[in-house]
Write a protein that binds this DNA or RNA. Sequence first.
DNA 1: GTTCGTTGTGTTATGCTATAACGTGTGGCA
DNA 2: TGCCACACGTTATAGCATAACACAACGAAC
Lengths: 140, 140
Amino acid sequence: MNTTPNLTKNQSLVLDVLTRSEAPLSAYTILDKLRDSGFRAPLQVYRALDKLIEMGIAHRLESLNSFVACAHANESCCGHAHGHGHHGTVAFAICESCGQVNEFHDHAIDDRLAGWAKERKFKPSKTTIEIRGLCEACMH
Amino acid sequence: MNTTPNLTKNQSLVLDVLTRSEAPLSAYTILDKLRDSGFRAPLQVYRALDKLIEMGIAHRLESLNSFVACAHANESCCGHAHGHGHHGTVAFAICESCGQVNEFHDHAIDDRLAGWAKERKFKPSKTTIEIRGLCEACMH
DNA sequence: GTTCGTTGTGTTATGCTATAACGTGTGGCA
DNA sequence: TGCCACACGTTATAGCATAACACAACGAAC
């Protein structure tokens, strides 16, 4: 069981499923994996996911309509730890062959996007960066 | 009518709708706008969109499940024009209040992502960058 | 010009993704 | 005790996307 404090039962169950998975999972796949634990409806999954994402310990992959556990949940690399290793914008490299996801973040990109936003007086709330392609293992 | 050459009738109709719209449109919204032109089924829209995106004259916004006409269809700023002003990865700033979308691209970010990919021998096929937030006009 | 492959089209049916709306239960706190 | 905030459970519905099949239009090759 994942022992992150202050998680409700449903949130823990969903996070566990995500943490154990090699690849991102859709909400409905999560639901299926949790039927034995008493889950019956999509909303139970979506509500847990919303909270996990809000806490920064799970992420949504927009280009896949799927979800992953945060790979950096215990780091706080950017100087301002918000309880769960909050860092700047996170980027994902997603292999379209094996489905594996690599999470990373990059100050230079953050700065660049922040600069663009500042120039235009645009106030960012959430930024999505996803690279789809082939990982080394899947290339010929 | 949009006069981009080599578009089929359906593709032109869809592109026209996108071009005239201030904000991104979902496939079903496009469908509704084209009922009078004979469209009856989602697939007619999706097929046209697929081609337009492939040609680089429309984009999909992953975080909205919606589509926009390319704002730079006639530019070729990065030195290699692929017929339709093909440039590097495109980024979008999306106002969550008014819905307006600002399309831009940034060499530094491109380079940075390319560098990351090269280091890991990851071969990118498509990159998504979307900033959601509030535009200047919508801030208080 | 006929044959054939490719591409676009039209249609029905279906599957996947996400949320609305309502009600219940529980724990903190004045 | 009464209230409030929040998690949870359930049903129904809305919104997004594609499978599978059939037909038409076009160009290239012969």
